[in-house]
Structures are given as C-alpha cells and as structure tokens.
C-alpha cells in the first residue's frame, strides 16, 4: 500500500504553482536513490516521474540552479513509490540528507551548536527556497529544545515527514546526541495554517 497518494490534478497544480527550490536539494534525492538502489533504481524513479507526466533527469541537476517547488515533492513521492517507503523511512531519508548536502557544506560555519544552527535556518531557507518561510519560534538552550514553524508551504504531507527527519539530521550532525522531532501542528491535519516542529537534543 502506498503511503503517499497524489492525484494527477494535484501533480499538475503543484508543478504550475509558484515557488522554486535550489537544485542542491534535488541532488540529495539523487544521492539517496543511488545509495539505496544504484543506477537501476534511479532509472525506475525517473520512469515513475515520466508516468506522473513530468519527466526529469537527476543527472542534469545543477546545485545552484532553481527548479519548480513541485518538482521536489514529485521527486519524494516517486522515490517513496519505487522503494515502497513508509513515513518512518521518509523521515530517515530526510535524516541522511544533510550528510551529503552541498548546502550543509556551504553553511558549515554555523554548525557549531544546535542553537547557532537553528538561529540561521530562516535565512538559509530564504536563500534556497523562493517560497515558504521557516521561523524559529523559541530555542531553549537549557532544556535543549526548539520549535520551528514553516509558513506558506503546503504542497504535500510527504514533505512534513521529510523535513522532520532533515531537522533531526542537522541537529545530530552538530551535537551527535539523541535527537527527536515531532510535527506538533500540521496544515494537512487542519490544525493550523502553518507547520510546527518540536525538536529535542
């Protein structure tokens, strides 16, 4: 059973929606596919994207080029279908993404403590996404936790799970300790008009 359903109409709407994302994020998808299934699976994912009506070649991705935001979601959905991934596995994919991310390497200077890292996430988001706003609501240094809110980015729930894992990956890279992340409020669950993530480390 597929965990992430998406209709043809939603795909087309997504691909025509405004907003772009930096190619480096799509490159982490490519690295994930190659690591998990090699060239064969990369072809399968590309075939899946073709069947969705939006063919794409991962090998042509340029790190600093901007691509439609919908492309990012379609990539994740296609990967989840080919590898038959559930929510936890998508989260794990997100966790591993910072390890190969060009953006992470570019902004290593902020990776000193979880606080210094998350203080920068808003500006980092703005530099690599032309849509959505990521804000740090609070950081509690003593209790080692933070709340992050993502506004105006409501493409598909797959990204909520992926982002949850991505935040864990970032915090783990900096701190190395046990990190947890929970989406406390989600637009898709009708709980709010934003997404709120609560991280502890």
């Amino acid at each position: 059973m597929l965990h992430y359903e998406i209709t043809k109409e939603a795909i087309n709407e997504m691909m025509n929606a405004p907003g772009e994302v930096c190619g480096a994020t799509l490159k982490t998808d490519k690295d994930f596919i190659l690591k998990k299934g090699g060239e064969e699976k990369l072809k399968e994912v590309e075939k899946e994207l073709e069947e969705m009506g939006h063919p794409f070649s991962y090998k042509k991705i340029e790190n600093m080029k901007f691509y439609p935001w919908g492309r990012r979601v379609l990539s994740l959905v296609a990967i989840s279908r080919v590898f038959k991934m559930d929510r936890e596995e998508i989260k794990e994919m997100g966790m591993n993404a910072p390890k190969k991310s060009f953006l992470v390497k570019l902004f290593m200077r902020y990776f000193l403590t979880p606080e210094s890292t998350f203080k920068k996430v808003s500006s980092l988001w703005r530099q690599h996404h032309t849509i959505g706003r990521l804000e740090v609501i609070r950081i509690n240094k003593e209790e080692r936790n933070t709340s992050l809110r993502l506004y105006n980015l409501n493409f598909h729930p797959i990204f909520c799970d992926y982002l949850c894992g991505y935040f864990i990956g970032i915090a783990k890279m900096v701190e190395g300790s046990q990190v947890t992340c929970e989406e406390k409020k989600c637009f898709f669950k009708g709980e709010s008009f934003f997404h709120e993530f609560f991280l502890t480390w």
């Binding site: 992470v104 390497k105 290593m108 990776f111 000193l112 890279m173 900096v174 701190e175 190395g176």
Partner: peptide, 11 residues
C-alpha cells in the same frame, strides 16, 4: 575529513 569543534564529522 572536516570536523566541527565538538569533533562531529561534517565532511
């Protein structure tokens, strides 16, 4: 490799 001041490997 490159590590942060806590010794976490970043690359």
């Amino acid at each position: 490799c490159f590590v942060n001041p806590k010794g976490m490997v970043l690359e």
